[in-house]
């Protein structure tokens, strides 16, 4: 995905949201500013199986364990970021 492999020292929902936007933009080859945070990722062609690889990216970047179904229960960037916030805070 990106060459950044070290988790940022602090991360909140805002940071995660911006990073996820870039991730999704890379996946779907659109400018980050064109990614709508409230549009389901499936609308961008990230289907229910492909979205799981995003989970692996999140775990790798932030060093947290994320239940992959979180991305099914929260299908857009905004809700995903909110759901990740407590996991990040508990690091």
């Amino acid at each position: 995905m990106s060459d950044i492999t070290d988790a940022p020292a602090t991360a909140d929902a805002t940071e995660v949201r911006a990073w996820l936007r870039e991730c999704v933009a890379t996946y779907v080859r659109l400018p980050a500013e064109d990614i709508d945070e409230n549009l389901p990722l499936s609308e961008y062609g990230l289907d229910s199986v492909y979205v799981l690889s995003l989970c692996a990216d999140i775990e790798d970047r932030y060093g947290i364990e994320v239940e992959p179904t979180l991305l099914w229960d929260h299908p857009a960037i905004g809700p995903i970021s909110e759901a990740l916030a407590p996991l990040l805070a508990a690091r």
Binding site: M1, T5, V49, Y50, L52, S53, A56, D57, D60
Partner: peptide
Amino acid sequence: SLLISQFPLLARLIRK
């Protein structure tokens, strides 16, 4: 396709 979807992480971990 399933494998390809996991390439970004797999590539990073092979390199590490």
